[in-house]
């Protein structure tokens, strides 16, 4: 098992996507197939953007097991998602004007993440949200 951790800062729009770019590069180097890699990159990028837009910041952890299967954990420190059902509804968004100017806030983030991953788990409370997604590569 190989593990990498990356910090994500609240509202750091300048570096939005830098972690996802690193994750994609790492996985490309170890030979993850292109189609799976693209799904991982899309999910990671959407989740990273969500953390920047909506959370107080947190950490992204990338785990690669011995068979090459990938787990990504996005753990932030709050404020939590008040209504998960709404957050998972396509088109529903609470994104700021700044996020919308960057081309986000279409209400598709969580929907996209769930769609491209093999498993999706979301735990949320006012002290933080943790999204765990996995991708079978082997």
């Amino acid at each position: 098992m190989i593990t990498y951790s990356f910090n994500v800062e609240k509202e750091n729009f300048v570096d939005a996507g830098v972690v996802s770019s690193k994750v994609k590069r790492i996985l490309k180097q170890i030979g993850i197939p292109t189609a799976v890699l693209r799904n991982i990159a899309v999910a990671c990028y959407e989740a990273e953007i969500n953390m920047i837009i909506h959370s107080y910041g947190g950490e992204i952890t990338l785990d690669i097991d011995d068979e090459g299967n990938v787990t990504l954990v996005f753990a932030d420190v709050g404020p939590g998602i008040p209504d998960v059902e709404k957050a998972l509804t396509p088109g529903w968004s609470t994104a700021s004007a700044q996020a919308r100017q960057l081309g986000f806030g279409a209400g598709m983030g969580l929907v996209n993440i769930k769609r491209v991953s093999d498993t999706f788990d979301l735990q949320t409370s006012p002290s933080g949200t943790t999204i765990t997604i996995t991708f079978r590569v082997a």
Binding site: G17, K24, R38, A41, C44, Y45, L102
Partner: peptide
């Protein structure tokens, strides 16, 4: 018509 680093990040993620 969107010109910012996120446009290129999106392209990068999708190859």
């Amino acid at each position: 018509g969107l010109v910012n680093p996120q446009t290129l990040r999106t392209a990068e993620m999708l190859d």
